[in-house]
Amino acid sequence: MLKRVHFPPSILPYLLVAPQVAITLIFFIWPAAEALYQSFLIEDAFGLSTEFVWFENFDALFKDPQYTGAFLRTAFFSGAVAFLSLSLAIVLAGFADRVVRGATVYRTLLIWPYAIAPVLAGALWAFMFNPTLGIISYALEFINVDWNYKVNGRQAMALVIMAAAWKQVAYNFLFYLAAMQSIPKSVIEAAAIDGAGPIRRFWTIIFPLVSPTTFFLLVINAVYAFFDTFGIIDAVTQGGPANATTILVYKVYNDGFVGLDLGGSAAQSVILMALVIAMTVVQFRFIEKKVEY
């Protein structure tokens, strides 16, 4: 049993947390409540009258094949981004863990992408892959790849996945490197003496031992792909061509600010909110439990 310590009532603690509470209220709770409220309204095309419709907006969303399409697309996009950036990061960390000399240079170079704003990262990739000007498009021509992500939806998706994954590699790399360096060197050496080559050591020793990190990063990366990739998509494809890269966050923006369907857009953002809350809960649950090995 914990003993309770009683302090005389004082307003100091309330004063101390007040700024944080104010910020949360103004920048999070208020807009969230507003969105929730909006999601129950339908506004006519001219913005002249609004009607309270309960769950009609949500109902319409789930009946809209565009929306369910965006849902699946987002799932695919997040999965691909997480998989690509995690696998790249773990391979790079595996090498960095073995390198002794020049490790700092190598690490610094790898960490740079993380410091770049999403929009800039998007612009960078858009530029490299620009169908007419891009250096990579130019190179692709030589191997007879007909590259034009502005008309080819699959190529557009591939491009935003690469851009989004690239930006996240640095972050994942740092976590993986730290996890690998906390594995005692002698465990790896024992495996080497037992006859395991580098690749086998990686799969049978290192990979299982960093699995808690993998799980943690999986959630982080999924959240990132769901929410933080707006800038990249906006800079590279604006959701196109033909909605091929319109993921949920982008659709919220597009329907609300371009299509001016405020009620529908608000309903979408409420769903996203529910998703992020769910993911956070999952993450905290598992981090507290720790993955057993």
């Binding site: 465990v187 003496i193 395991a196 080559g197 299982p208 031992l209």
Partner: peptide
């Protein structure tokens, strides 16, 4: 020769067991 090919076995101070 690689450690694996030397036909030796080693016991480490911290045991170095595979924890998983």
């Amino acid at each position: 020769l690689e450690p694996a090919d030397r036909d030796i076995a080693m016991v480490f101070q911290n045991y170095a067991l595979y924890p998983h």
